[in-house]
Amino acid sequence: MNAPESRYHDAFLQALLSGHSDDPEIGALLAQPAFAIYRNTVFKGCVDALLANYPAVHRLVGRAWMESAALEFARHHLPRQASLIAYGEGFAEFLGTLEAARALPYLPGIALLDRCWTESHLAADQPVLAGAALHTALAEGRDVTLVPHAACRWHHDGQHPVYTIWNANRNEEDATELAPQWCGEGALLTRPHGQVQWQALGPGGCRFLDACRDGCAIASAADQALTHEPGLDLALLLGQLVLAGAFTSFY
């Protein structure tokens, strides 16, 4: 994009966000009734996408609150792709800055799990690691490095029971009344058979996956997991992760 095109693009986006422009050419566009319709359509599409992509947050806060927050987010974060199926990256962090969300300190964590679901759902297809092959390698004494599956996502909140709250609010049909212990929780999301699945995962498990993602071998990943969760049964954890389809290969 050359300089004149870039300036026009920037001015157009500014007009879309603010509804006014000092650029005469863009100003002429603003004067047309069709531009207001286009502008409203763009923002409505963004808001609708956020409501769809963050269903647990939507259910917790209600439609009016969610629409207001979504519109504010959209005004500062226009979509970068024509498709809105993955729109909303950064929404969890945005919620953490909202004064209106101060009474719900767990809300950003719930939004992160909604985002994990979207990313897991849209991730590339990959084969799931065969547990027998890994068992053979470990029996031979190899300190292998596990590669997380493209659809594997995880998150741990050190302060809030985000998994319990998110799990209960992910589906409209679930009417479970909550009385969670107010402590940190985490979650693992995988897609082993083409459908996103989720389960609770502790701080040690999440740290283990962090280490695998960073290229650490199993011994190092295990040490880091135990640092975050002393007493963790590593064999049980590894079996849980493999069974869930958290890995695609090892080397």
Results as ranks from 00 to 15, higher is better:
147 V>H: 13
128 V>P: 05
154 W>L: 01
129 L>P: 11
155 H>P: 00
131 G>H: 11
168 A>R: 05
167 N>M: 02
126 Q>S: 12
157 D>T: 03
162 V>K: 04
124 A>K: 05
163 Y>C: 03
125 D>P: 03
155 H>D: 00
170 R>F: 15
138 L>F: 09
149 H>T: 04
133 A>L: 15
159 Q>L: 14
161 P>D: 01
142 R>W: 06
162 V>H: 03
148 P>Q: 06
144 V>L: 09
153 R>T: 02
129 L>K: 12
126 Q>G: 06
158 G>N: 02
162 V>R: 02
171 N>D: 14
164 T>R: 00
139 A>C: 09
134 L>T: 11
141 G>P: 12
156 H>P: 01
125 D>I: 11
131 G>I: 08
173 E>T: 14
154 W>T: 02
118 T>N: 08
145 T>I: 07
121 H>G: 00
142 R>T: 09
136 T>C: 08
126 Q>T: 10
159 Q>E: 11
157 D>N: 14
163 Y>V: 01
154 W>N: 00
169 N>L: 12
146 L>M: 04
128 V>L: 11
132 A>Q: 13
173 E>C: 05
136 T>W: 08
150 A>G: 04
122 L>Q: 13
154 W>E: 01
157 D>S: 10
170 R>Y: 09
171 N>H: 15
161 P>Y: 04
125 D>T: 14
121 H>N: 12
126 Q>N: 07
153 R>F: 06
165 I>Q: 01
119 E>M: 12
127 P>N: 07
138 L>K: 10
166 W>H: 06
149 H>Q: 06
131 G>L: 09
134 L>H: 10
120 S>V: 03
161 P>S: 03
173 E>R: 12
126 Q>V: 06
141 G>I: 10
156 H>G: 00
160 H>N: 14
153 R>L: 01
124 A>C: 04
162 V>D: 00
149 H>I: 01
151 A>M: 03
162 V>G: 01
129 L>N: 12
128 V>W: 03
120 S>Q: 05
168 A>W: 07
121 H>M: 13
123 A>K: 08
155 H>F: 14
168 A>N: 06
163 Y>W: 14
141 G>Y: 10
125 D>Q: 13
171 N>Y: 14
161 P>W: 04
141 G>Q: 09
148 P>C: 08
138 L>P: 09
127 P>A: 12
136 T>E: 15
166 W>L: 04
131 G>M: 10
171 N>E: 15
157 D>H: 14
162 V>I: 14
163 Y>F: 15
169 N>A: 07
169 N>W: 14
119 E>F: 04
149 H>K: 03
144 V>T: 12
136 T>Y: 08
139 A>T: 13
165 I>S: 02
131 G>E: 14
143 D>N: 15
145 T>F: 00
119 E>K: 14
139 A>K: 13
129 L>A: 09
137 A>D: 06
144 V>M: 07
146 L>V: 10
147 V>N: 01
146 L>P: 06
129 L>G: 09
168 A>I: 08
121 H>K: 11
153 R>V: 01
160 H>L: 00
120 S>E: 03
122 L>P: 03
160 H>G: 02
132 A>L: 08
167 N>W: 05
150 A>K: 02
139 A>V: 07
125 D>A: 15
122 L>F: 13
122 L>R: 14
136 T>S: 11
134 L>S: 10
123 A>Q: 06
146 L>C: 10
132 A>N: 09
148 P>T: 08
121 H>E: 15
170 R>H: 11
163 Y>E: 05
